[in-house]
Design a protein around this nucleic acid. Structure first.
Lengths: 343, 343
DNA sequence: TTGAAAGCGCTAACAT
DNA sequence: ATGTTAGCGCTTTCAA
């Protein structure tokens, strides 16, 4: 934590002013355009600035009380790989609007989320994009969020939030999957998921089974210990432990992520079980290679592209007019049929 | 761009000092520990701060000339999906050390990289992590990088850089792949890649073929128009256009990414061609599901975990001691054998 | 152990 | 069109 003896900015506005023989204020105006400056003066200022390698100090601007042109992202990078696309698109779009992006992972943990938000507050970001489950929206987190000039929340559970938010409902798609299985004559339908992390999805699945009179109950759920979608060994272990004899008692399998589904298809294939003839398989998240598996994998599309557009629009419109009321957009995920789902 | 009439910090150090009836300096000292403060005074200050909801203004600190506790990341998020793990690990590790992360995508473009670096300079980040090909390291970019107190570069081409850097050499692994194919009796070895984006990899591949006296020359390269690893339709198109009759004239195929390899395996499989018996396949990047394909996919591991450790260590050690000389660590990627590569 | 003064770089507001 | 003043919140330096 040593402090540099030399000031950061060897040539600030004051220095330019001195060399160009004008007042600092005129230099400031020449850069910001906040008031007219004689063309000749401006030219002189610019050439001096150029020569001196002037670079504005954004902290001074921020201290003075203006916008910081920065957005804080608080997300989990341990969920879907598709979060990378989200990140990239937000970064690129924000940069076009001259915003800089801070990134932080809340680790699925309230304390961690709070800490990041406090950090963002101390850095006076203009806005925050928060993605996480309802569980993370503690009272404290909500009150911290309320301190930002602009907030957009991305969540999968319909909540009643005082902020603009996008709801990526997953349950409708899960119901679509169950309905599809049912309509094509499947009756022993199973769901492979980490029950702890997927409470709502599991509940929706079970509920939809019941609506068709298929109440195998807990037997329908194949629990697994995966922590993230890239936790492939957990998927294999789950299959092995649920079906130690390699003869699964089911005719349809929905998985909570495509990675699990792909691995399930391999697992079945190597045991002489045909997909979709013997067992239909549907994944989740619609990762790019799903479509290109030996048997194209049906999945559920998150509609991330639409989501990103909406999120950024929400944020930018609040930047423009802090007075507009919080809005809410629903972007339910969509079942994407492909061969693996069967007829 | 409206300016708030109300100052950001409703209760800064000055306000606390007023209420606690001490000087601002004492409050500052109570927080920073830069000088002893009577226990009783400190307690009073802390309780007032708590009550007032004090939150330090990091811009004021930065303006004063100290560290900003921030690191700028300049990378491409459009290359490997494994960049997400890199991002996540850097973010988490940096947070433990009380650094905040800025993220920016250079889009593979020099102008864009320059702009991001200037932005980071204006925000006085303590350090920069740059990942990109040698092509991006223009004179201007290098001189901008030189302005930061700490820089770490991640590159795949051995370069002579004045900064600490990690070299992720890919060519050694490609040579290993070719050698393996050759050793197992394959003689019609092909490489599926975007030639434009993979010049060095292609060169290494061709060179190694020649070293074995296998000079099919340009015929060995199956060019494709993919822009990124998730560009799956490009992979299919490439296969279709190179082998319109569905009877590929080869016995071994190396692909520039695992996604392409997985798709190639499906493509071959659906044409009755067996992997690895008829054609051996090796991917690149060792994505998590590679191992779990119907035929486990051989690949090349990037050693990202090791890389991240080294990169952060380089940065942190320079934070501690700005005087230490730039270092360089080589982490050549490694061929990972699995069934798809054949005996 | 505490306080007073000064200034980091910038710009709103009020002169001229 | 340009200049002057003042202050954002913090911490270094010097003084008590």
């Amino acid at each position: 934590m040593s402090k540099p003896r030399v000031p950061f900015n060897q040539s600030g506005i004051v220095e330019i002013a001195r060399v160009a023989k004008v007042s600092p204020m005129t230099v400031s105006r020449a850069f910001s355009g906040s008031a007219p400056v004689a063309a000749k003066t401006r030219a002189r200022i610019m050439s001096v600035a150029e020569e001196l390698g002037y670079r504005p100090n954004l902290h001074a601007r921020a201290l003075r009380g203006g916008r910081t042109q920065s957005i804080g992202l608080l997300i989990s990078m341990n969920s879907t790989p598709s979060i990378l696309k989200v990140l990239r698109n937000i970064t690129i779009s924000a940069r076009k609007e001259e915003y800089v992006i801070y990134i932080s992972d809340h680790l699925g943990d309230v304390a961690s989320a709070e800490q990041s938000l406090i950090e963002y507050l101390e850095r006076h970001v203009d806005g925050v994009i928060f993605q996480g489950s309802e569980r993370l929206l503690s009272k404290k987190v909500l009150s911290l969020l309320a301190e930002f000039p602009a907030v957009t929340v991305i969540t999968s559970e319909p909540a009643d939030l005082p902020f603009s938010h996008v709801v990526q409902d997953r349950t409708a798609a899960i119901r679509e999957v169950v309905d599809h299985f049912y309509a094509s004559g499947r009756r022993r339908i199973r769901y492979l998921a980490n029950v702890e992390f997927n409470e709502r999805k599991v509940a929706a699945f079970l509920q939809q089974l019941e609506s068709h009179g298929l109440s195998d109950g807990e037997k329908s759920i194949l629990n697994m210990n995966s922590v993230s979608d890239s936790d492939c060994s957990a998927f294999v272990e789950a299959l092995n432990s649920h079906f130690p004899d390699g003869r699964p008692d089911m005719d349809a399998l929905h998985c909570s992520c495509d990675e699990a589904a792909i691995i399930a298809m391999s697992w079945l294939n190597s045991r002489g079980i045909r997909v979709p003839d013997d067992i239909a398989v549907v994944g989740f998240n619609n990762i790019t290679i799903a479509e290109y598996q030996a048997v194209p994998l049906a999945s559920v599309d998150r509609r991330e592209d639409e989501m990103i557009d909406v999120v950024l629009q929400m944020l930018y419109s609040r930047f423009k007019d802090p007075g507009i009321p919080a809005s809410r957009v629903e972007l339910p995920m969509k079942f994407i049929w492909r061969e693996s789902a069967g007829s």
